[in-house]
């Protein structure tokens, strides 16, 4: 080693060794980057192939006739009218039940419930419920809603089964969304003399709407693709009529008869067509799948937009 201008100058080979060593250590970085990229592309590739396959087989089949026709023995005349109407009505029941129950339960657990062994137990079980296979919800709905409550193999039973299925998702989304609100915002409201209910109603709910709505949409997009619980409670696969209309032209103007109507839904219709022998119905199945997929993707897109908006408007 030599000294030049007060600095210790290290010999050249020292730098070479250091450089080589750094290069070697960085090799792991480079390899992980490559493998990670490969795996990501594979995942995207699978999704892409799936979409292309559906588009290739089904896109030509989607037209006005397809959307406005009942199922038929002849593939060319068959359509998804009863299926998409059924899916729409199911989602109305599911949302109508899962949103108020889930949000209320989330608010209770996060803002009101005392923290003790009992609430810990409830929390763990809600997390577990989110992981229960959907067909078990179907079995429960069959026993409880179809037979016990005598709702029959109806839209109401189906919607309630799906609501039970997604309830934990809504509860967890509500709680997480409430948890992102800082404690000092709650305290600001309480310090001005707000009750818990006023703090929730004036502040916590408005500030967490974006997060809750995101969770609700994701829950709905999970529910919309479910077929197992619906098949379990006895949704039919061949429905050549629409449920009674909810709006009447004479008093009392609203009718809830549709709740007790038999139904089918998009995934069930699709399953029915896929499982037929012969090629005739395959384009129909792909077309129904494509519609389902588009609905799910646009719901997820809406969820992302909502989250972005919520983040933009509220800063802490």
């Amino acid at each position: 080693m030599s000294c030049a201008g007060g600095f210790i100058v290290l010999p050249e080979h020292f730098f070479q060794r250091q450089k080589k060593q750094a290069h070697q250590r960085r090799a792991i970085d480079r390899w992980f980057q490559r493998i990670g990229l490969l795996l990501t592309l594979m995942t995207l590739g699978i999704l892409g192939i799936l979409l292309l396959n559906l588009v290739g087989n089904g896109l030509m089949r989607i037209d006005w006739q397809f959307l406005t026709s009942f199922p038929s023995r002849r593939a060319g005349e068959a359509g998804v009218l009863s299926a998409w109407v059924g899916t729409l009505l199911l989602m109305m029941v599911t949302a109508g039940v899962a949103i108020p129950f889930g949000v209320a339960a989330g608010i209770y657990l996060e803002e009101y419930a005392p923290k003790n062994k009992w609430t810990d137990f409830v929390e763990i079980n809600i997390a577990n419920l989110a992981g229960v296979p959907s067909i078990l919800y179907g079995l429960m709905a069959l026993g409880l809603f179809v037979y016990q409550f005598r709702f029959g193999q109806s839209i109401l039973s189906g919607g309630l089964a799906l609501a039970c299925l997604v309830l934990p998702i809504v509860i967890v989304a509500t709680r997480e969304s409430l948890r992102t609100i800082p404690a000092n915002i709650r305290e600001a409201a309480f310090a001005l003399g707000a009750t818990r209910w006023q703090a929730v109603w004036h502040h916590l709910l408005p500030y967490s709407t974006g997060g809750i709505a995101t969770g609700v949409i994701l829950a709905m997009s999970r529910a919309i693709g479910e077929s197992a619980p619906l098949i379990t409670i006895g949704a039919l696969t061949f429905i050549a009529f629409l449920p009674p209309t909810p709006v009447l032209s004479h008093p009392p103007f609203l009718s809830f008869e549709w709740l007790f109507s038999p139904f089918t839904a998009l995934p069930i219709q699709m399953f029915n067509w896929v499982s037929r022998p012969g090629e005739d119905f395959q384009p129909n199945a792909a077309a129904a799948g494509l519609i389902l997929m588009l609905i799910t993707l646009s719901m997820n897109g809406a969820a992302i937009l909502l989250r972005k908006r919520a983040q933009r408007n509220i800063k802490w």
Binding site: N184, I185, A188, A189, A191, L192, K315, W316
Partner: peptide, 12 residues
């Protein structure tokens, strides 16, 4: 009793 906190905490 009004209160003012350590960190400014206006409502959004």
């Amino acid at each position: 009793f009004g209160m003012v906190f350590q960190k400014p905490n206006p409502f959004p």
